[in-house]
Simulated scan of single mutants.
Amino acid sequence: MIDQRTAPYAALILRVSLGILFLAHFSLKFFIFTPTGTAGFFSSLGLPGWLAYITMIIEFFGGIALILGIYTRVVSLVLIPILLGAIVKVHGPAGFFFTNPNGGWEFPMFWVIALISLALMGDGKYALKPSATVKN
């Protein structure tokens, strides 16, 4: 049974936490690795370098949208391919555990599951632009 009194706050906590994680990953790419360095890393993986810039833009604006609660359901789904790409190209070959060298795929996959859950759950409390909901 879902507690209708607290569920909107659970969605809020999940939404804000995921948004902060995306902003943290954007910041790592932008401030530490630099956009040029990130593009070089993408190229070393066999991906086009320009995809790094697209990824950073989506992480930045997606993180902000999640924190503010702007089209949460759609934004959650848009962010999933970034993590799946990270799993396939970076973390997957390292094995399951995230503590392995190059990090495993356990944490990014959990992140995907959290985004799917948020997309199913909805915005939660204090969303600026709530997503459309399905009425029964």
Rank of each mutant, 00 (worst) to 15 (best):
L118A: 04
W111E: 09
A39S: 15
Y71Q: 12
F33S: 08
A127K: 06
I67L: 07
V112P: 00
W111Q: 11
T34I: 06
V90D: 14
T38C: 06
T38Q: 08
S44Q: 15
S131A: 14
G69V: 01
T55I: 09
A86R: 02
T34V: 07
F61R: 01
W111A: 14
S131F: 02
W111N: 08
I87D: 00
T36N: 12
I13H: 05
V90P: 04
F33C: 00
I70P: 14
M56W: 00
S76Q: 02
A11F: 00
A94T: 13
F26P: 01
I87F: 00
F33H: 08
F98K: 06
F97P: 02
A86C: 04
L23V: 11
F42L: 09
I58V: 15
I20P: 15
A127G: 09
I54W: 07
L66S: 04
F110P: 00
V112N: 00
W111K: 02
G37I: 07
P8N: 13
G49W: 02
I32H: 13
I20D: 15
N102G: 02
G122L: 05
I116R: 03
I54N: 05
L23K: 07
D3V: 00
W105Q: 07
I116C: 04
V16R: 12
M1N: 07
V90R: 13
I57H: 01
W50S: 09
F33M: 06
H25M: 07
A10I: 02
G46A: 04
S117C: 12
S131M: 13
F97W: 13
F31H: 01
G63T: 11
L83R: 01
L12E: 05
K125A: 15
S43G: 11
G104N: 11
L118H: 04
G37Y: 08
F61Q: 01
L84T: 11
G85D: 12
G40T: 01
I87V: 14
K129M: 12
W50T: 02
H91W: 03
I64T: 10
S44M: 06
P93D: 12
A119G: 10
I67W: 11
I13M: 15
T34H: 08
G49I: 01
